[in-house]
């Protein structure tokens, strides 16, 4: 029986520790998942579904649960991806889709038949209109998700680039890319004959 002493001692110790940890785990129990809230706050909220989830919140939940990688938010771009990777503590992954210029949807009103299908598709309720009436998109609220293009039976919705505003103009990063932009801008002003 001598040889069983160590086994007993070890078992008792393990039991004590196990009970202690069980108590501790009850005391320090974490409610909910604050991570997914943090991720959701980073997402652009376009609700575009390009990530394969029906909106931003579901994607945030999926990322927080490690079900999906961090690089599926196309409108958020690299900056969002890096921020999420940072929170999740994983290596950043390149976004496969190309980053696009910011756009908003625009309805060519004379072609619109007033079918209200786009109104139903808009995730942020920014299309105004009634059956058999022209529809209009409130450009200030449009997230550029392109979800209204598909349902339109007469293809009268265009995605147009958002105009650059003087108040929103920001200095480009010092580098080479800035060269082309200014050159074209100058040319456009000369054409406009100001």
């Amino acid at each position: 029986m001598e040889f069983l002493y160590p086994v007993f001692i070890f078992a008792i110790l393990a039991l004590v520790i196990g009970v202690g940890l069980a108590l501790a785990s009850r005391y320090f129990h974490v409610e909910g998942d604050p991570l997914s809230d943090k991720i959701d706050a980073l997402l652009p909220q376009t609700q575009c579904g390009q990530c394969g989830y029906p909106g931003c919140r579901p994607y945030a939940n999926a990322v927080a649960a490690d079900e999906v990688s961090v690089n599926h938010c196309v409108p958020g771009g690299e900056r969002t991806m890096l921020a999420i990777a940072d929170i999740m503590g994983v290596e950043p992954k390149a976004i496969e889709e190309e980053e696009t210029v910011p756009v908003v949807a625009y309805i060519r009103e004379d072609e619109c038949i007033g079918c209200t299908l786009c109104i139903k598709a808009c995730p942020v309720d920014c299309i105004i209109g009634a059956p058999k009436q022209y529809h209009t998109i409130v450009a200030d609220h449009c997230t550029g998700c392109t979800l209204c293009l598909e349902p339109c039976p007469v293809d009268c919705i265009d995605m147009v680039e958002t105009p650059e505003l003087l108040e929103h103009w920001a200095w480009p990063v010092p580098g080479t890319k800035r060269a082309i932009k200014a050159e074209t801008r100058k040319a456009s002003h000369e054409d406009a004959d100001v």
Binding site: L43, T46, T143
Partner: peptide
């Protein structure tokens, strides 16, 4: 130039954040 770039980007990020917040609210309302 770098500082101006930084300031511009911070402003841009804040605008985007505000817009995202608004979109979220609109989406939740919808």
């Amino acid at each position: 130039h770098y500082f101006r770039y930084g300031k511009g980007q911070v402003a841009q990020i804040q605008r985007e954040k505000a817009f995202a917040e608004e979109s979220r609210m609109r989406s939740e309302k919808r």
